[in-house]
């Protein structure tokens, strides 16, 4: 089972980090549609975070349609096309801000492409821990 990553020192709300992380894991295909996500208890214990925070992240992910809940069994990743759009939009947003930063720093298009390729080749992104 894949666990999302959380950095408690980043200053970003933890439920937000959980959500982002799941969006990323789903977009990268590291979680398959209809695959079960860790339970609130498991995730909270594994990461040493507040179960209510996990619950909140799951609730919002469910509202966004990325996951669905089966009462008594847990949370599962959904597979609707719309969700993929959400993913793409997420990624596009990240790229956009990166491009903006690059642009202000005076980095050229070619360098930017190189940087992106480098990022993709970084083992950390390709296979997130667990």
């Amino acid at each position: 089972m894949i666990y999302p990553e959380v950095n408690v020192l980043s200053g970003i709300p933890i439920y937000q980090q959980l959500k982002n992380s799941y969006h990323r894991l789903a977009a990268l295909g590291l979680i398959q549609p209809h695959e079960q996500l860790p339970s609130v208890r498991q995730l909270a214990m594994e990461l040493g975070i507040n179960p209510n925070t996990v619950q909140k992240a799951y609730r919002e992910l469910e509202q966004e349609g990325l996951i669905y809940a089966v009462p008594g069994r847990g949370n599962f990743l959904s597979d609707s096309e719309r969700e993929l759009d959400v993913e793409h939009e997420e990624i596009r947003r990240s790229f956009r801000s990166a491009v903006q930063i690059a642009w202000t720093a005076g980095i050229e298009r070619a360098t930017l492409h190189e940087l992106l390729d480098e990022c993709i080749d970084e083992p950390k992104v390709a296979e997130p821990e667990r």
């Binding site: 208890r41 214990m45 040493g48």
Partner: peptide, 12 residues
Amino acid sequence: QNLKRILARQVA
């Protein structure tokens, strides 16, 4: 971290 894990479990 251990304490947080245990507390998280008791809460859940």
